[in-house]
């Protein structure tokens, strides 16, 4: 057995896909409790929340014809989404030492302004917390099987994948999952 690997602690990883909203302070307390229960002291916590923007005009050819954006309908592949996000977190763990992460991604119809995704990352130092948080989001956006449909006042349209999301992976110098 590789002693270096054996001495490394695996981070606490928890991934949830849900239709209901989430409460960031409550989720943060849960993460802190999980660390305390495992006698782990953290030094840094990065929190990212993504929400439904009021406009998606840049993503559509003729968005003006549809009127205001009302909501996003988020579909997913239940058997695959959680596994994929867990695999991304484990890939991050091979690169940076971090203590815990919790990822919540919502599905179903989400109105403008509602939160979509939460990524909490606890580590000993800020550098790892920021890096792991961004890494998880970058890979989630390009590998986790979620699809957004934009619901406008008049009509609806599937959101197209962005080249910039795929290009964001370049900074990690890893192939896409």
């Amino acid at each position: 057995m590789d002693i270096n690997n054996a001495s490394k602690l695996s981070p606490l990883v928890s991934v949830v896909i849900q239709s209901s909203t989430f409460d960031v302070p409550a989720e943060t307390r849960l993460l802190e409790k999980a660390l305390a229960d495992n006698r782990i002291n953290m030094g840094a916590l990065a929190t990212f929340t993504g929400s439904v923007r009021g406009s998606e005009t840049g993503a559509f050819d003729d968005a003006a014809a549809y009127g205001e954006l009302l909501a996003l309908d988020i579909e997913h592949y239940p058997a695959m989404t959680q596994l994929t996000i867990e695999a991304i977190a484990l890939k991050a763990a091979q690169r940076w030492p971090f203590l815990a992460c919790r990822v919540i991604h919502r599905v179903g119809r989400l109105a403008v302004g509602e939160p979509i995704v939460l990524v909490l990352v606890a580590s000993s130092h800020r550098k790892e917390a920021f890096a792991v948080c961004e890494f998880i989001l970058d890979y989630l956006k390009t590998a986790a099987p979620f699809w957004k449909k934009a619901i406008f006042e008049q009509g609806e349209q599937w959101v197209a994948a962005k080249v910039s999301d795929t290009e964001a992976l370049d900074k990690w110098s890893l192939p896409s999952l």
Partner: peptide
């Protein structure tokens, strides 16, 4: 994807596998 793993067009399929076809993902 075959059994929830993304694969290429030349991937072998076994009896009982679950396949999925989908557009590029847009979550997050």
């Amino acid at each position: 994807a075959i059994n929830q793993q993304v694969v290429g067009r030349d991937a072998r399929i076994k009896d009982g596998d679950e396949l999925a076809f989908f557009p590029p993902v847009t979550g997050g």
